[in-house]
Deep mutational scan, measured.
Amino acid sequence: KRPMNAFMVWAKDERRKILQAFPDMHNSNISKILGSRWKSMSNQEKQPYYEEQARLSKIHLEKYPNYK
């Protein structure tokens, strides 16, 4: 399994927050909201998630050096 990208790292927690506020919301609607919110974020706001992506990718590479 591939490591999560920056959007997926961010969306994991955000999806949970949306589901708590709107438990009956369909997954497709949540995904649209998440995509819209991510697009509206500045690069500075996204930076911690890109850093986490890099950390996860490094761990993945160490654990699975032959993964293609």
Rank of each mutant, 00 (worst) to 15 (best):
I18Y: 05
K46V: 01
R55M: 05
L34Q: 00
E52C: 02
S31E: 15
G35P: 03
S28H: 06
K12S: 10
Q44A: 14
P65I: 10
Q47R: 07
I30T: 01
Q47T: 05
N66Y: 07
M8P: 02
H26S: 15
N27A: 13
P48M: 07
S31H: 08
L19V: 11
N43F: 06
V9D: 07
I59W: 09
K17M: 04
W38V: 00
K68V: 06
I59L: 11
I59N: 13
Q20M: 10
K58V: 07
Q47F: 03
D24G: 11
D13G: 05
N29C: 12
K12A: 11
E51F: 02
I33Q: 03
S36V: 11
Q47C: 03
S28Y: 05
H60A: 12
E51M: 08
G35N: 15
S28Q: 14
Q44P: 04
K58W: 03
S40K: 06
M4W: 06
R2F: 11
M8S: 14
M25S: 03
K1N: 13
N66T: 09
Q53D: 06
W10T: 02
Q44F: 06
F22V: 07
I33R: 07
E51A: 12
P48D: 05
I18M: 06
Q44R: 09
P23D: 03
D13N: 05
A6Q: 03
H26R: 12
E51I: 03
Q20V: 06
K12F: 03
I30C: 02
E14F: 15
R55K: 05
A21G: 05
L34M: 02
K12D: 08
N66P: 11
K17S: 06
M41F: 02
S42Y: 03
N27E: 15
S31M: 15
P65E: 12
Q44K: 12
P23E: 05
Y49V: 01
S40L: 08
A54K: 08
P65L: 09
L61M: 14
Y64K: 15
H60M: 05
M25L: 07
M8R: 10
N66F: 07
Y67M: 13
R2N: 14
V9P: 00
R16Y: 08
E52Y: 01
L56M: 12
M8K: 13
A11Y: 02
G35H: 04
Q47N: 05
I18A: 00
Q20L: 08
P65S: 13
Y67P: 14
W38G: 00
R2G: 12
K12C: 05
M8V: 06
K58E: 14
H60C: 10
M4L: 06
L19F: 05
R15K: 12
A54F: 06
R2M: 12
Y49C: 03
R16H: 12
F7W: 02
R2T: 14
E14C: 11
E52N: 02
M4C: 07
M8A: 15
K39R: 13
E52L: 03
H26E: 13
L56N: 07
K46M: 00
P65D: 15
Q47D: 06
V9F: 06
W10K: 01
Y49S: 03
M25D: 03
N66C: 07
N5E: 12
A6F: 00
L61P: 12
Q44W: 04
L61Y: 11
F22A: 08
L34K: 00
E45C: 02
K1D: 13
Q44E: 15
E52D: 05
N27P: 15
E14D: 02
K58S: 10
H60V: 08
N66L: 09
K17Y: 01
L19C: 08
E45Y: 00
N29Q: 15
N43P: 15
L19H: 10
N29S: 13
H60F: 11
S40R: 10
P23R: 06
K63H: 11
N29H: 13
W10S: 02
R37S: 05
I30Y: 00
H60Y: 11
K12Y: 05
N43W: 13
L61W: 08
M4Q: 06
Q47V: 08
I18C: 03
P48N: 04
Q20H: 08
N27L: 11
W10C: 03
K46G: 00
R16P: 12
M4H: 10
V9R: 04
Q20I: 06
N5D: 14
M4I: 10
I30H: 00
Y67C: 13
K1L: 07
I30E: 00
K1V: 08
M25Q: 02
P48Q: 07
I59C: 13
D13T: 09
Q44V: 11
K68I: 11
Y49W: 08
Y67F: 12
N43D: 14
H26Y: 04
G35A: 15
N43G: 08
N43H: 09
K1M: 15
A6T: 02
S31V: 11
W38A: 02
N43R: 13
L56G: 08
K46T: 01
N27M: 14
N5R: 02
S42D: 08
Y64S: 15
H26L: 13
N29K: 15
Q20F: 01
K58I: 07
I33F: 03
M4S: 11
Q20E: 15
Q20R: 09
E51D: 13
K1T: 11
R16T: 14
Q53W: 11
S40W: 11
K17A: 07
K12M: 11
W38H: 00
Y67W: 11
L61V: 11
L19S: 10
A54N: 08
K46H: 05
F7L: 02
R55A: 09
R15F: 12
Y67K: 11
W10P: 05
R16N: 12
E45N: 01
Q53S: 15
E51H: 06
A6W: 01
K1S: 13
K68P: 10
